[in-house]
């Protein structure tokens, strides 16, 4: 589904990712872990198409297509979803209006008729349950006045509505209490299918107790220095990132 080869990315002349390689297949959950400032969020942004970053070399193919040929909105419509670390507020734009617009853009992309207001509301009510959202989203503006936990739940709610092929969750666990963490993880697990894939970016192991990854990658200094299964995450938790640093130096 996603294949990243020898990717090198920089911002303002400073290299952030280098010799980065990753293969993600349908049905898989990959966790990318690493200390702060090692390029985890940069990776998410580059896949989503944020042009703050300069891609110096390397390639990314998504579903056999060159990702760099696709505009950010096209990537989204083709099924790439980014759960933001810091979801932005859009005052005055209701969640319902926002998501209906997004879903209809996607439908248009695939030559489908737009959803009517009633159809949309029905789907929205279903998906709200998935992440335990109770408030009336038809009159709440996008992320405006949402607590930290609500914002993260809202990201998963949007993911549920857009039904992506590839979801990248960027530090979705940060700022969540244990209850919210469980709700978010539960939502992600329920959305898991054989034909979609998830990349979970996280600093801590605790999210991975609830979302069980098939692969765990440790990102350090712009590249993956160690890969393994869920046991790697546990090792990291107990030994700390210093352990990885020493191992690399050896």
């Amino acid at each position: 589904m996603l294949s990243i080869k020898n990717l090198q990315v920089s911002i303002d002349g400073q290299t952030i990712l280098k010799q980065f390689n990753l293969e993600v297949k349908a049905g898989e959950i990959h966790a990318i872990m690493g200390p702060n400032g090692t390029g985890k969020s940069t990776l998410a942004s580059v896949i989503a198409g944020r042009d703050l970053f300069q891609v110096d070399s390397g390639e990314i193919t998504y579903e056999g297509k060159n990702l760099f040929d696709m505009a950010p909105e096209e990537r989204a419509r083709e099924g790439i979803f980014l759960g933001f670390q810091y979801p932005v507020e859009i005052p005055g734009v209701s969640m319902a209006n926002f998501m209906r617009t997004a879903m209809n853009e996607k439908r248009k992309h695939f030559g489908m008729e737009p959803l009517s207001g009633a159809e949309f509301l029905k789907i929205m009510e279903q998906k709200k349950k998935l992440v335990d959202i109770h408030s009336n989203l038809t009159n709440r503006a996008v992320n405006e006045g949402f607590s930290g936990g609500e914002k993260k739940k809202n990201e998963i709610f949007q993911m549920a509505l857009l039904d992506p092929k590839l979801a990248i969750l960027d530090e979705t666990d940060s700022g969540l209490d244990i209850d919210a963490l469980k709700i978010v993880a539960n939502g992600v697990n329920k959305l898991r299918r054989k034909d979609n894939a998830t990349i979970v970016i996280t600093h801590y192991q605790r999210l991975l107790e609830h979302i069980i990854p098939d692969y765990v990658h440790v990102l350090f200094d712009g590249r993956i220095v160690k890969s393994g299964d869920k046991e790697l995450a546990k090792q990291l938790e107990s030994k700390g990132y210093e352990w990885i640093k020493k191992e690399i130096l050896v």
């Binding site: 933001f84 810091y86 734009v93 617009t101 996607k106 503006a141 949007q158």
Partner: peptide, 26 residues
């Protein structure tokens, strides 16, 4: 950030600005 958030949800730049401005004036 607002514009990119919209783009990432599949909403193109022009629609995004329309949405944001209408929200602002709501």
């Amino acid at each position: 950030d607002q514009l990119f958030y919209c783009l990432q949800r599949g909403i193109d730049m022009e629609s995004a600005i329309g949405l944001i401005v209408n929200g602002y004036a709501r």
